[in-house]
């Protein structure tokens, strides 16, 4: 597994801990929603190390509300190319809850969805080995404009609607800045 974050391939400090694994005493870790909601859920925060939770695509993002301000990371699962539920989950986390931690795409994470993911607020991507890693840097430049205004810091595109309104953007400006 490789981690793509902020435009770079980087080492992953986080460890996903499955439900049947014992919890490591130290270090940043990602647990399932079931574990967070379990009897020992509160205990997970006591070690003082960063905690993340992994949400599968069918699990409601609202379930995280009680813990959101203490979570450093939310990992959202993509079970298949065609399952786009995590796009809405990320958008809700950023837009409605103002979640400022890392939103990580996990599962079947494909470069063809990279721009869409960035635009709704994902900022880290776990990519399976064997994928063409170099294309992750370049694919974003394909269509550097979008009509919609993405209210997320991670968006790689310039909003056409906003640019029309402010008259600020010259064609080609974005690419020149890359």
């Amino acid at each position: 597994m490789s981690l793509f974050k902020h435009g770079e391939w980087t080492t992953d400090d986080w460890r996903f801990v499955a439900d049947d694994e014992p919890l490591p005493a130290v270090g940043p870790k990602i647990v399932t929603l079931a574990r967070l909601q379990g009897d020992d859920g509160e205990y997970l925060f006591h070690c003082g190390c960063p905690l993340g939770v992994r949400l599968e695509s069918g699990e409601p993002v609202e379930a995280l509300e009680p813990w959101l301000n203490r979570l450093s990371l939310v990992a959202l699962g993509f079970p298949a190319f065609v399952d786009g539920r995590a796009f809405s989950a990320a958008a809700i986390l950023r837009q409605r809850h103002g979640f400022a931690g890392e939103i990580r795409a996990v599962g079947n994470v494909l470069v063809d969805q990279h721009a869409f993911m960035l635009r709704v607020g994902f900022d880290a991507f776990e990519v399976a080995e064997g994928r063409a890693l170099e294309s992750w840097r370049t694919a974003l430049l394909d269509v550097p404009f979008a009509y919609q205004y993405d209210d997320t810091a991670s968006t790689p595109v310039q909003s056409i609607w906003q640019a029309r309104r402010s008259g600020s953007l010259q064609a080609g400006e974005l690419q020149a800045a890359e």
Binding site: V82, F87, A91, A115, R119, V120
Partner: peptide, 12 residues
Amino acid sequence: QWSSLHPEFSFL
């Protein structure tokens, strides 16, 4: 325009 390459609604 709004629906073109919509970031959230392209994998319905």
